[in-house]
Simulated assay, not measured.
Amino acid sequence: MKVNKKMKTSALAGAALLSLQALPASADQEYLLTITRPGHLQVIDMSTNEVVRTCDVPGKFGTGSIAPSPDGKIAYVLSNMTEDVYGFDIQTCDITFHAAQSQGNVRVKTHQSITVSADGKELYTVQNPVRHLPDRFEVMEPQLAVYNTADGTDAKPVRTFPVDRRITKIAATEKGEVILGGADIKAIDVNSGEVRMVTALQSWDRGPEWLPPDAFAMHSQGEQSNEYIMPYVTAKFQDDTMNMETAEWWWGISRVDLATGEAVRQEIIPFEFIVFNFISDPRDPNIFYGSFNTLSKHDITTGETLALYEMPHTYYDLNISADGKTIYVGGTSSDISIHSSDTLEKIGSIQLSGDMSTSDLRVATIRD
């Protein structure tokens, strides 16, 4: 049977259209990022949970702190014993940025404190400088350093502002501030240097019934919910005798919305086990997960622990997929444990070439 040429062309066009309609819609690509010893940036495809790229990081291992760019394409890494910052194209491993923070006889250390502006144009670090003199070390004042990410592999600070000591994890807001996680949570305007209190912690005044909190931000993995979380531990005493044995012990959080810079501080669950890091579920801001020796799931509106999973060893940090279905637990050793967010049951594992130690576990999302 002969087929009319016009009908044949129409049929082919229809088949092509059906084929295109059958293709999945364009989707964001999520990569899990971490650093392993002796100095490798591990790039993990979260759709397959496989390491797709291992980038060599110059310099000695630092703390493994990572700040992904907003477009997900660049990972900024602290290296060389926390003195240098390198920017890696995570799709090629090319180094696009380098800032050597130590200059001359001034040695600069940055303790986890690295972040990128919401538009990706600036990078921020908190520098802790010490001048090395022939007969002594001169401890200098810490400062926030501002770099242009477009300045390439010989970047120098374009602005600096004085900041407090004891600052660890920081994060950039969409309002042009950097959240500073220290004894208290503060925010600094990156153009004027003006500092404001966000959440009082060590300086809070809740009377003699409340113990000043023990707060420390080693890891802040809030990119999936666009937030910064500082965990703390405190106690509520029965009376002014401040009896530790009868006190109610609580986990609390200072939680900063990175879109607005506004924060809430609240006690969320009883202090029953160690948590090194909290993340929230991107589908429900009231559901929290925590990790250390135990992976845990909590409803912070009720203070109820919804699920527990005992881990085979300590894991310092965790992160979550954008759809909220999968939790990745890492740090400390050389394996990333993969869990269902519904039940916390283990559903997989990623073996790496070296241990992560104190490294971050960040998600970089490349959007089409």
Rank of each mutant, 00 (worst) to 15 (best):
P68D: 09
H313Y: 07
N319V: 11
V264W: 01
L17N: 03
F292I: 00
D205G: 05
Y86R: 06
F271H: 14
V51A: 12
L144F: 06
S225F: 06
T160L: 00
T234N: 08
N191D: 12
E227V: 07
M7T: 15
E345H: 02
D119Q: 05
S280K: 07
H132F: 14
F292H: 12
Y232F: 15
K73D: 01
N226K: 11
E30Y: 06
Y147K: 02
M230V: 10
T9M: 13
D355P: 08
M81K: 13
W251S: 05
S340N: 14
M81Q: 11
L12E: 05
V163D: 02
Y316S: 14
D71A: 08
N105F: 07
I66V: 13
F288K: 02
G72A: 10
L23I: 13
S254Y: 02
R367Y: 03
R283E: 13
F271D: 10
T326L: 04
W210R: 13
S10Y: 04
N319R: 00
P70C: 10
G303H: 08
K175Y: 00
T294M: 12
D189T: 11
I229E: 06
N286K: 08
A217S: 14
K186Q: 11
T326R: 03
V126M: 09
Y228P: 02
E267V: 15
N105W: 09
T110A: 13
A322I: 04
I179A: 04
I66E: 02
E30C: 11
N4L: 03
G222C: 06
I366S: 07
M7G: 00
V256N: 08
P162N: 09
I229W: 02
N319F: 01
P208Q: 03
D335H: 08
E177C: 10
E122A: 05
S203N: 15
H313P: 00
V85S: 03
D355M: 04
D56W: 04
V329P: 01
V52T: 14
S113P: 04
S334K: 15
D56N: 15
A75F: 00
M242C: 15
K236I: 13
I35Y: 09
A118N: 09
L295H: 09
S337Y: 12
T36A: 05
G176W: 00
A307G: 05
V256E: 05
S225N: 14
H219I: 01
N286R: 07
T9K: 15
I95W: 01
F273Q: 12
G72E: 04
A187F: 04
S321H: 03
V3N: 01
Q224T: 11
G222I: 08
I287V: 15
L41S: 07
P312C: 06
D342M: 10
S113G: 12
I35E: 12
G252F: 07
T199V: 15
M230R: 05
T314W: 05
L41H: 02
T199F: 03
K6H: 09
N243F: 10
T168G: 00
D214R: 14
T241I: 01
R53W: 10
F273G: 10
V178R: 01
I253M: 12
K109D: 06
M356C: 13
S353H: 03
E209N: 09
Y86P: 09
T260P: 01
Q112H: 14
L32D: 02
V363K: 02
D317S: 14
P162S: 08
M230C: 04
L144C: 05
G330N: 07
I66Y: 05
L20C: 11
M218V: 09
L180S: 08
V198D: 01
I350H: 07
T82M: 15
I229A: 12
